[in-house]
Amino acid sequence: MLEIADTYGANRLGATAADVFAAIITDRAFRSDTPRIAQSIAAAGAPSYAYEFAWSSGIEGLGACHVLEVPFVFDALAGAHTLTGPNPPQPLADEIHSAWVAFAASGDPGWARFEENSRLAQIFDSPESRVVSDPRGDELAAPRKSVA
């Protein structure tokens, strides 16, 4: 477990032990299967796209959390302050909402497909989103045998 914690901690300078532990558990519960599933879809010949919603909530200590992107995806920021905080960035909502609409209409959200050799993923963030190859792949590759 120490090697995993070291890998995660190196990517989160200044994080508390609790923050590092939360990142490890979150990845194991929510993120660790994503590249494998995307790879399987791509290997079957179907287009596969990956994204991460990385914007940190305006609520102190919450960060980027599960379901935070929902009001952005549906462009429904008004009244969404329970998770977003009082001033969520509308340009980010415009961007992710447009990507989801494009994907629903055409099957293409507007960024490069996930492929095994590149593992590209769209990172939605504010003030700037970007496409990244294998985001935090070192964390997912960290030895798992010591995690129960």
Results as ranks from 00 to 15, higher is better:
residue 31 R to H: 11
residue 147 V to Y: 12
residue 126 S to V: 14
residue 69 E to Q: 07
residue 40 S to V: 11
residue 15 A to R: 02
residue 65 C to M: 10
residue 127 P to R: 15
residue 73 V to N: 02
residue 139 E to Y: 02
residue 62 L to Q: 04
residue 45 G to S: 02
residue 124 F to M: 01
residue 57 S to Y: 02
residue 9 G to D: 07
residue 11 N to D: 03
residue 56 S to M: 09
residue 41 I to S: 02
residue 16 T to Y: 03
residue 65 C to G: 07
residue 130 R to D: 02
residue 124 F to L: 00
residue 39 Q to V: 09
residue 67 V to G: 01
residue 4 I to F: 02
residue 52 E to C: 10
residue 101 V to I: 12
residue 139 E to L: 01
residue 121 A to F: 04
residue 119 R to H: 02
residue 54 A to D: 08
residue 52 E to D: 08
residue 20 V to I: 14
residue 148 A to Y: 08
residue 9 G to L: 13
residue 99 A to N: 01
residue 83 L to S: 05
residue 74 F to G: 06
residue 120 L to A: 14
residue 80 A to W: 07
residue 125 D to N: 14
residue 104 A to E: 09
residue 140 L to W: 00
residue 36 R to V: 07
residue 42 A to R: 04
residue 9 G to F: 08
residue 3 E to D: 06
residue 92 L to F: 09
residue 72 F to W: 08
residue 15 A to N: 02
residue 65 C to E: 11
residue 124 F to S: 00
residue 64 A to I: 12
residue 60 E to S: 15
residue 104 A to L: 09
residue 4 I to E: 02
residue 101 V to R: 11
residue 53 F to A: 03
residue 43 A to Y: 00
residue 5 A to Q: 12
residue 77 L to A: 05
residue 53 F to H: 06
residue 108 D to N: 10
residue 35 P to E: 01
residue 148 A to L: 14
residue 2 L to T: 07
residue 101 V to N: 03
residue 132 V to I: 05
residue 40 S to R: 09
residue 8 Y to C: 00
residue 33 D to A: 14
residue 128 E to M: 13
residue 7 T to C: 07
residue 93 A to M: 03
residue 130 R to Q: 14
residue 116 E to G: 05
residue 10 A to I: 04
residue 134 D to Y: 00
residue 115 E to L: 15
residue 76 A to E: 15
residue 95 E to Y: 12
residue 67 V to A: 10
residue 28 R to V: 11
residue 17 A to K: 13
residue 144 R to L: 10
residue 139 E to P: 05
residue 80 A to T: 08
residue 66 H to Q: 12
residue 120 L to D: 04
residue 88 P to S: 12
residue 119 R to M: 03
residue 90 Q to G: 03
residue 101 V to W: 04
residue 95 E to G: 12
residue 46 A to N: 04
residue 16 T to N: 06
residue 15 A to H: 04
residue 148 A to T: 12
residue 104 A to G: 02
residue 139 E to M: 07
residue 121 A to G: 05
residue 37 I to F: 06
residue 18 A to S: 15
residue 106 S to R: 13
residue 20 V to M: 06
residue 135 P to E: 03
residue 123 I to Q: 15
residue 119 R to S: 03
residue 77 L to D: 06
residue 74 F to I: 07
residue 143 P to C: 08
residue 36 R to K: 13
residue 130 R to N: 09
residue 67 V to M: 14
residue 19 D to F: 03
residue 147 V to I: 15
residue 15 A to Y: 05
residue 39 Q to T: 11
residue 78 A to K: 12
residue 65 C to D: 09
residue 34 T to R: 08
residue 65 C to K: 10
residue 14 G to Y: 07
residue 49 Y to S: 09
residue 122 Q to S: 09
residue 58 G to L: 06
residue 31 R to E: 06
residue 124 F to V: 00
residue 40 S to M: 10
residue 110 G to V: 06
residue 78 A to Q: 10
residue 40 S to Q: 11
residue 18 A to W: 07
residue 11 N to R: 15
residue 5 A to L: 11
residue 62 L to T: 11
residue 21 F to P: 08
residue 76 A to S: 14
residue 84 T to D: 04
residue 121 A to D: 03
residue 96 I to A: 01
residue 6 D to N: 15
residue 94 D to Y: 00
residue 65 C to N: 11
residue 31 R to A: 14
residue 78 A to F: 11
residue 115 E to F: 05
residue 139 E to G: 04
residue 93 A to G: 06
